[in-house]
Amino acid sequence: MARYILHRLLMMVPVLLGVMVIVFTIMYMTPGDPARMILGEGAKPEAVAQVRDELGLNDSYVIQLFRYVKNIVTRFDFGLSYNTRKPVISELLNRFPTTLKLAVLSVSISVLLGVSMGIISATRQYSIFDKLATSVALIGVSMPTFWAGLMYVIIFSVFLGWLPASGSYGWQYWILPSFTLGTHSAATIMRMTRSSMLEVIRQDYIRTARAKGQKEWVVILVHAMRNAMIPVVTVAGLQFGVLLGGSILIESVFAIPGIGKYIIDSIKSRDNPVVQGGVLLLALSFSLVNLAVDILYGFIDPRIKSRFRSN
C-alpha cells in the first residue's frame, strides 16, 4: 500500500511540471499587457514600460519560463502577485483553508443527504417518498447555486432573520453557503446512490442475507450499501475536487474569501503569477483527492486492495 501511494505521488511530479509549463505558456500567449492592466488605461507609457521592466516581462518566453520553474523548484518561490506585490504563496494559503472548509462541509452535507435519501428511495422504489425525493433531486440539480444561494439568504436572513447573510466570522456563517453547495451536489449523489443500490439489492447475495434471517437494516446498511458505494465515492470525490477549486458564485454571494473568485479575478487582471500558482495548487489538490478516492476504493472493496499489493 505504502509503495502504491509513493508510486502515485511520484507520478504527480511530471503532471505538475506539465501543468506549470502549460499554464505559463497560456498566460504568456494571452493578449493583454499585465503592466497596463495594473496601472489602468490612463497610465503614462513610461510608467507602463517601468512596470514591464520591473516584472521582467521584456525577457523572452524561454528566459521567463526558465526563471519561473527554477524559482519554484529550487526555492519554492512562486513570485509576487503583480497587483498586491505580496508573495503568491501567502496570498493563496490565506484563501485556501476557507475553500477547503467550505468544500469539506458541502461534501459532508451532500453525502449525508444524498446517500440517506438515495438508500430510502432505492429500498422504497416507486413509493411516494421515492417520487418526492427524485423530484426534489431533479429540482436541486436544475437550480443554479447562485440563484439558490440568494433565495436561501432571502428566506433565512431577510425574512426569518435566523442566519447571517454573508461573511465567514463564525460557524453560523457557514450554514447557508455549505447548505447551498451541499444540496446541489446531494441531488447528484442521491441519484447515483439510488441507481447503484437498486442494482445491488437485486443480487443473489442480498437474497441470501435475507434468507439467513438478517434484519432488513443490516441487509441494507451493511451488505448492500458497501457494495453500492464505489460509484458514489467516485462522484463525491470528483465533486470534492471541483469544490477545492472554489466556487466563484457562492464566494461572491456569501462574501467568502476563497480561492475560486481570486483566481478568476487574477485571470481578468492578468496577475499571471497568481494564476500560475493557483492552477498548480488546484492541480495538486485534485491529484491528491483522486489518490485518496483510489485508496478509499480499497477499503470499500477488498478485491481492489489486493491489486495495490500486486502493483
Binding site: A165, S166, G167, V253
Partner: peptide, 18 residues
Amino acid sequence: FRTIPEAASRVIEVETGG
C-alpha cells in the same frame, strides 16, 4: 470595510443590518 463582491448581497446586508 467588508468586501462583499456580489451587489445583491451588499444590499441584503444593509437591509438586515449586517
